[in-house]
Amino acid sequence: MSRERAPAGSEHTSPTPSDPTGATRALGASLPNDRRRRRLGTVFLGVCFVATSIGAITLMVLLVDVFLDGIGQLDPEFLGNYASRFADRAGIRAPLFGTFWILLLTGAISFPLSVGAAVYLEEYAPKNWITRIIQVNIANLAGVPSIVYGILGLAVFVRWMGLGRSLIAGALTLSILILPVIIMAAQEAIRAVPDSIRQAAYGLGATRWQVTRRQVLPMAMPGILTGTILALSRAVGETAPLIMIGALSFIAFTPQGLTDQFTVLPLQIYSWISRPGEDFHAIAAAAIIVLLALLLAMNAVAIVLRNRFGRVRSN
């Protein structure tokens, strides 16, 4: 047995020229060890594919589950009505408006700040310890749990700045939450702009800002926008930070200004989930369908942008 398991070596350790026929074993007469390894390899491959498909299968089950639960509730009235104590009369008018408000405000606040930071780090920053600290810090901020941003928003925007449970407090909180995400995406997009472009522009006597504004940013913009949209879709799905700033309350109106109270889809969904009773769960599922449809639309835009971006880069 042990002799059989020894590899090819035992039979032809050192074929020498004095043995020109070199008694060799035929190919394909595989050793038991080889067969075992081949079987093991097949099993491993199977395990890999099964594990990989678990993610995709769960995704399917989740989507189908939500769809079956909620589709019956999804009608124009559901979109147009305010929340109600009665599940069959409740709608998502307020959270739908709130979500769009939050989306616009968060985008308007975080986009310029993030792009500014990314431009500074890629085009302006000297290579010194301050830059390094800023960069490390951004990477770490991206890993801070979202609820911690909620605590910060509560302490700084709601209480210290006295903004209360307003739209602007919510938008500011979510803006700082997605700031590091957009900065890193924007940095990557700016970095992908070939240096030759910059050198050509500098060669024509352009200033740093002219080079950045007229050459680098336009080329990096599809990538920056893709990153921004993906980050905003994260903001749209966030619940915990907004609970922290106290946005979870019964809201039966659409916000008219920055200091108005508001609610958003994830908050409304959470509020319905936390109620006992099948009927509220069903309208929660219906609201989830709307939320997922919105996220899907945002992602589709991001993918289209990214594909165009990819083409531009390969040319």
């Binding site: 190919l27 595989s30 080889d34 081949r38």
Partner: peptide, 20 residues
């Protein structure tokens, strides 16, 4: 052909080929 046998026959294990 490796010692007269075709390496690309379907029943040949490429693992054994590469070992030898």
């Amino acid at each position: 052909l490796f010692h007269g046998q075709d390496l690309y026959r379907p029943e040949i294990d490429p693992v054994e080929v590469r070992r030898r």
